[in-house]
C-alpha cells in the first residue's frame, strides 16, 4: 500500500509552464523585473490621476461658469440680453438689434454680479434717454426658478428707482424659440401676447418695433376686443400708464 500510494503521487509533477508562470508572477509582483517603465508609471499614477481630476474640475468649473442659467432681457428700442450663470455673474451680452449693439458696445458688465450690471445699465445716459421717451422692459427667464425669482426681485428693486421700467418673469420654454427667431426673451414674450390679439402679426414686424410701440398695439387691440390688456404681469412704476387702461 505504501509503495503504491508513493508511486501514484510520484507520477504527479508541476509542469514547467506552471513554474514559469509562477516565476513571472513573482518577478512582476515582487521584483518588478523589466518594470522600470511600470515603476515610473506606478509612481506617476497618482500624480496623473490628480492632474486628470484637476483638469476635469477646471473643465467642469469653466463649463459651469460660462453657461448661462438665466437670461435678463432688456428691451426698449435697443434689445439686448444678459446671460447670468449659476454664480449670478453676467457671462454673455447679446444684442438683438442695431441699437442694442450700440448700447452693448458702451457697456462693460461681463463678469459683474447681475445686480451691479442692472444698476450700471439703468444708470447709463443713453438708456435714460430711451426711458424718458419709451418703456424699458426687463424680463427674466431661466430653468432655475429660485434664481429667476431672486433676479426678478432684484430687477424690481432696481426698477423702483427709475421711471418707465416694467419687470416681467418670462417662461423658460420660450428662451430657445426667442433666440431662434433672433429676438430677446422679453421682446418675444411681448410678440406672443400681440400674436394672440392679432394673428397676422409677424416676427419681422415686431423686430423693428420698440417696446413702447408693441405695448401700444397690445393695448389698442385689447380695447378694440373689449378685454383687459393681457399684460397684467407687467408692473408699471411710472410714466405712460400702459396696463392701467388710462392711456
Amino acid at each position: 500500500m505504501n509503495d503504491k500510494i508513493r508511486d501514484a503521487f510520484d507520477a504527479v509533477h508541476a509542469d514547467e509552464a506552471l513554474k514559469q508562470r509562477t516565476r513571472e508572477y513573482l518577478g512582476k509582483t515582487v521584483y518588478r523585473r523589466g518594470g522600470r517603465r511600470n515603476t515610473a508609471l506606478r509612481r506617476l499614477g497618482p500624480a496623473m490621476a490628480a492632474a486628470c481630476l484637476l483638469l476635469a474640475l477646471c473643465v467642469g468649473g469653466a463649463y459651469l461658469y460660462f453657461t448661462p442659467t438665466a437670461f435678463i432681457s432688456i428691451d426698449v428700442n435697443p434689445s439686448l440680453e444678459l446671460g447670468v450663470n449659476c454664480f449670478d455673474r453676467i457671462v454673455t451680452v447679446e444684442a438683438y438689434n442695431e441699437d442694442g449693439q450700440a448700447l452693448a458696445g458702451g457697456l462693460s458688465v461681463k463678469n459683474l454680479d447681475y445686480r451691479e450690471a442692472l444698476e450700471q445699465i439703468l444708470a447709463d445716459q443713453d438708456v435714460e434717454v430711451y426711458m424718458t421717451e419709451g418703456i424699458l422692459s426687463l424680463t427674466v427667464a431661466g430653468e432655475n426658478e429660485d434664481q429667476c425669482a431672486e433676479i426678478y426681485q432684484a430687477m424690481e428693486n432696481c426698477a423702483s428707482e427709475h421711471r418707465n421700467v416694467r419687470c416681467h418673469a418670462g417662461s423658460s420654454d420660450t428662451i430657445e424659440e426667442a433666440h431662434s427667431e433672433g429676438m430677446s426673451v422679453g421682446k418675444y414674450q411681448a410678440y406672443l401676447i400681440l400674436l394672440e390679439l392679432d394673428p397676422d402679426t409677424t416676427v419681422e414686424q415686431v423686430q423693428n418695433m420698440s417696446m413702447y410701440e408693441i405695448y401700444q398695439l397690445i393695448y389698442t387691440y385689447a380695447r378694440e376686443q373689449g378685454i383687459e390688456p393681457p399684460i397684467g404681469g407687467w408692473h408699471e412704476h411710472s410714466g405712460h400708464g400702459y396696463g392701467h387702461g388710462d392711456d
Binding site: F9, V12, H13, A14, L18, T22, Y25, L26
Partner: peptide
C-alpha cells in the same frame, strides 16, 4: 513545486485554482 502541486491535486479540481495556490504560496 511538485509538493505544492500534489497537495493542490488532493484538494482542488482545476488548473486555474492550482495556479492561484502556486502564486499565493510562493508569494
Amino acid at each position: 513545486a511538485d509538493t505544492v502541486r500534489r497537495i493542490c491535486m488532493v484538494h482542488l479540481k482545476n488548473e486555474a485554482d492550482t495556479e492561484d495556490i502556486f502564486q499565493t504560496v510562493f508569494l
